[in-house]
């Protein structure tokens, strides 16, 4: 009996000693994004087994299983299910950029195209509305993905593509390509793409010209056909003096 009480007391004393260490470690975990609290309301969306697995340190595996299910749903063009599964996947693994990217791609590119070509809906206006709703869902995934991963360039780049290809909003596309380019690990073309997009924006031609010109002057490896075409277009539009224009024969 005395021994049991002694053991219990040791456990409690040990518990009191470890408590501040655990709290400190938890805070570091959160700071380094190793521990994102799982919303307990999430239980309603996930199966009981999946929820238990997610709480037991197997979130990434549960997320993978759901991701594979989402791909199966995509193959069957069950867009509602794809959306639901990707919401679960991104809730489980908010730091996995890949999942946000894939979710946005399915919504803004695949589901939106399917909605526009939906033969079951005879009214074009409603098909266009559905398409726009899917664009918005894709954008929402990307914006929330960026909120969770502000230091990773990939989602900024995808959001830029979304603005460019789906909304035809070159100004915002340029802004997000520029944001991606400013981050470590960005693709080398992000900076160039930002300048290309800006060259399409009415009223920002001077700024675009300066940026494209700087890239052109940076060296041969930047003098790609699109850059030269956009630069020539702006030279004409801005009436740049002949001696300041790029040399045609060089390229």
């Amino acid at each position: 009996m005395i021994r049991s009480v002694l053991v219990f007391l040791i456990v409690l004393v040990f518990g009191a000693i470890k408590l501040p260490i655990e709290r400190d470690l938890s805070a570091t975990h959160r700071q380094l994004h190793f521990r994102d609290e799982l919303d307990l309301n999430f239980r309603e969306q996930l199966s009981q087994l999946g929820f238990v697995a997610a709480l037991s340190g197997f979130r990434s595996i549960v997320a993978d299983v759901l991701f594979i299910q989402a791909n199966v749903a995509w193959e069957r063009t069950e867009w509602g299910r794809v959306l639901l599964l990707f919401r679960q996947v991104t809730t489980l693994q908010p730091r996995a950029v890949l999942f946000w990217d894939m979710a946005a791609w399915h919504m803004a590119w695949n589901a939106s195209a399917a909605a526009l070509n939906d033969r079951a809906q005879p009214r074009l206006a409603l098909r266009i509305k559905a398409q726009r709703d899917f664009f918005a869902l894709g954008r929402d995934f990307l914006e929330r993905g960026i909120e969770n991963n502000p230091e990773k360039p990939r989602l900024y780049e995808t959001l830029a593509r979304l603005y460019k290809e789906k909304y035809n909003d070159h100004e915002r596309a340029s802004e997000f390509f520029a944001k991606a380019a400013a981050l470590p690990g960005a693709m080398s073309y992000d900076k160039r793409f930002s300048a290309y997009e800006l060259s399409y924006v009415e009223g920002r031609e001077h700024q675009a010209y300066e940026r494209l010109r700087r890239l052109y002057d940076a060296g041969e490896n930047q003098r790609l056909p699109t850059l030269i075409t956009r630069l020539k277009f702006l030279e004409d539009k801005l009436d740049i003096l002949d001696e300041q224009r790029i040399n045609d024969t060089e390229n």
Binding site: E22, L25, H33, R95, V97
Partner: peptide, 15 residues
């Protein structure tokens, strides 16, 4: 606190 040793999710996500 067994969760303290569970860094797999973060590592895979690139942390």
């Amino acid at each position: 606190d067994l969760q303290a040793f569970n860094l797999v999710d973060g590592i895979i996500a690139g942390a």
